[in-house]
Structure formats: C-alpha cells, structure tokens
C-alpha cells in the first residue's frame, strides 16, 4: 500500500497483538524516539501469571518509560502502558485506566477489542490503533469501532506476519488506512504527532 499522508492528530496509540507479535514489538520499540508526545498502550494476549515478563523485556529496549498498568493510573505522553495479564483494560474520559475482571472476550483477557473500543470512545478521531500478528480474531470488532469514530486503523501486513490470521481477518473486514510491514512501523509511529 502506498504511503498516505498522515494528517491525523494522534492523542493516543493503542497496539494490539497476539501470537507472533512479540518479535514485532522487540523490533519496533528500540527504534522509537524518546520525544514521542502521545501515550502508547499495549494489549497482548499472554498466559495469566506470566505477568511482568513483557514489561521487563521492553524496559531494557526503549528509552520510553514502560509501565504495567495499575488501576486509575493516568496516561502520559512518551510513556508505554502494558495491559496486565488477566484484566481487561479500559480508558476513562479523564485519560486514566480502569481494569475489569469480567468475562473473557474472544477467549481472551485482556481483550484487544475491549481496549480498542474504549479508546475509540474517548479519543475518537485522534486515536491510532495498530493490530499485529495473531491467530484469533480479537481486535477486528474493535477496529470497526475505531473506524466509526474516525480514528486511524493500521494493520500489520499479513504476508509477513508470523501468524497472519488475525491481521488478515482485520484487512478483510475493516478498511485500514495503512497496512505495514513490521520494519515500517517504527518510522510510522515516530512520524505521528499530537499537534500537527
């Protein structure tokens, strides 16, 4: 897909991934600039209990502050917030996080759909969402809602995703603004800006 002009203001970036997304994160995060002026939220499927492993992995590889979300924590620019294992992650109108231990969605908790939807209702057209590799369809419904609110939808190119099912479902069902290879993502994120 041709590089389109990015004219969306970005007040928050939410990245969702499942099986096969860890490699992408480990490729993208070291290349992110420290002066990014929006918060980044990360929702990935993983086993409950293996809690802070991803947080520790990313901490050593980026100049951004990485947190595993505590409930009611405030979202700040240039910070990375990771959804804790076994809780859904919601965003309040005042840009704080709420955690929720309700039923699994798409066999997943945290569910990517839940956070995409919640972020879309708060940030509307100033939201950018990226869906990465994975082997179930979590995230697709959420991206529809992001689209509806005028947010920007970016999907990892299924042809180079380790697990193409999730991004392929999304490409089939949701009209993405961009489909990117993992090696294009850091540049894309670095070019996003809060005040355009």
């Amino acid at each position: 897909m041709a590089q389109t002009v990015i004219n969306n203001t970005c007040s928050a970036l939410v990245i969702g991934g499942s099986a096969g997304s860890l490699d992408v994160l480990l490729e993208v995060f070291p290349a992110l600039k420290a002066e990014i002026d929006f918060p980044i939220v990360l929702v990935t499927h993983r086993k409950s209990g293996s809690d802070s492993l991803l947080t520790d992995l990313l901490k050593g590889r980026t100049s951004l502050n990485v947190h595993e979300v505590e409930e009611k924590q405030e979202m700040l620019p240039a910070n990375v917030y990771i959804a804790p294992a076994d809780y859904h992650l919601l965003i309040e109108q005042n840009h704080t996080f709420s955690l929720d231990y309700s039923e699994k969605i798409n066999y997943s908790r945290p569910s990517i759909d839940v956070t995409f939807q919640s972020a879309a209702e708060v940030f509307k057209s100033e939201l950018v969402c990226i869906l990465l590799s994975g082997s179930n369809a979590d995230g697709v419904e959420g991206l529809k809602i992001v689209n509806k609110h005028g947010g920007m939808v970016v999907i990892q190119n299924p042809s180079t995703a380790l697990m193409p099912y999730m991004p392929q479902q999304a490409v089939n069902i949701v009209k993405p603004h961009l489909v990117l290879h993992s090696y294009e993502m850091a540049d894309f994120i670095n070019a996003l800006n809060k005040k355009n």
């Binding site: 919601l90 309040e92 709420s98 309700s102």
Partner: peptide, 9 residues
C-alpha cells in the same frame, strides 16, 4: 462506579 466499566456492562 468507574464510568468506562459500568458503561461497558
């Protein structure tokens, strides 16, 4: 109650 959660429910 936390608004986002109750709204979702």
């Amino acid at each position: 109650y936390s608004h986002a959660s109750i709204k979702r429910r």
